[in-house]
């Protein structure tokens, strides 16, 4: 089972400096945040989709297609419970169905969907090491960045070990799907305990290996991979700043708002 969404490609997004990628994610989040009206949000979602196509991340977007629908519909229905604004079109308790609540609910659903889409794009073109470098350039302490990277590296190991235990228990006739939801949760005890103890056995050796390599001797350790800024990164920064400014202008001018009449 894959534990990251990263897809190996040589697109312009993949070649960007990690800081530009992290900044890009922040700007897209910012841009989506300011716009409420689904019609005003559409062009932004289309830009993100176009970038997905250009950078070869379509397989991840396609993989998440049901997830996007599952995010948009419940978010929309939830807001139709609580956003009681405008003249009701039909009576459908407990939902409040007005033009404003439909627009608001759909807008929120689309917004959450667009946020996830942007993050899928980011993760499709960014390795874990790049994420750690990007965040450390933005001020994240080295040890925290290292821990995040190490944890990402350990996940497949533990997951594999968990799946092995599941298979071993199934071979013995243990049924993980029997019973109600609570019984099904309780049935994971025989999986978690061996995985847990196996992980702890690694902890001491790992700590010794790290200290033997001088971990913690300096706050500014050298890195095997050096990332340099290029003119394309400056162009990306300029584009992102313009995108952020336009989105804020859409909000400020009222074009991104939902009519509440």
């Amino acid at each position: 089972m894959k534990t990251t969404l990263y897809i190996e490609r040589d697109s312009f997004v993949h070649r960007l400096h990690p800081t530009a990628k992290v900044f890009g994610l922040f700007v897209v989040f910012w841009s989506i945040y300011w716009v409420d009206n689904p019609l005003a949000l559409m062009p932004l979602a289309l830009i993100v989709l176009a970038i997905a196509l250009m950078m070869g991340a379509w397989e991840n977007v396609y993989r998440f297609r049901w997830f996007f629908i599952l995010i948009i519909v419940p978010t929309m229905l939830t807001w139709m419970l609580f956003y009681r604004v405008g003249k009701p079109l039909i009576t459908l308790p407990p939902f409040y169905v007005s033009e404003a609540s439909l627009m608001f609910g759909f807008g929120r659903g689309l917004k959450v969907g667009a946020l996830v889409l942007a993050s899928v794009l980011f993760l499709s073109g960014t390795k874990v090491e790049e994420l750690a470098v990007g965040l450390s350039r933005l001020g994240l302490p080295y040890r925290l960045g290292f821990t995040i990277t190490l944890a990402f590296r350990l996940v497949p190991l533990f997951m594999e070990s968990a799946l092995t235990v599941v298979d071993a228990q199934r071979l013995r006739g243990y049924d993980f799907d029997a019973g109600g939801p609570f019984e099904r949760i309780r049935r994971y005890v025989p999986v978690v305990v061996p995985v847990f103890m196996g992980a702890l056995r690694k902890a001491n050796n790992m700590a010794m290996a790290l200290e033997a390599r001088g971990f913690g001797r300096t706050h500014r350790p050298t890195s095997f991979i050096e990332y340099r800024m290029h003119p394309r990164d400056a162009a990306a920064f300029a584009f992102l700043l313009a995108l952020g400014a336009v989105s804020f202008w859409i909000y400020y001018s009222g074009l991104g708002a939902i009519p509440t009449g």
Partner: peptide, 25 residues
């Protein structure tokens, strides 16, 4: 403390390793 850093990574990885494949209901 290097041991605490390692235990932090192990706790995180264990959480994620059980979180991702075992989404029950």
């Amino acid at each position: 403390n290097t041991r605490m850093v390692v235990l932090c990574a192990i706790s995180a990885a264990l959480y994620a390793a059980v979180l991702v494949p075992f989404k029950v209901v």
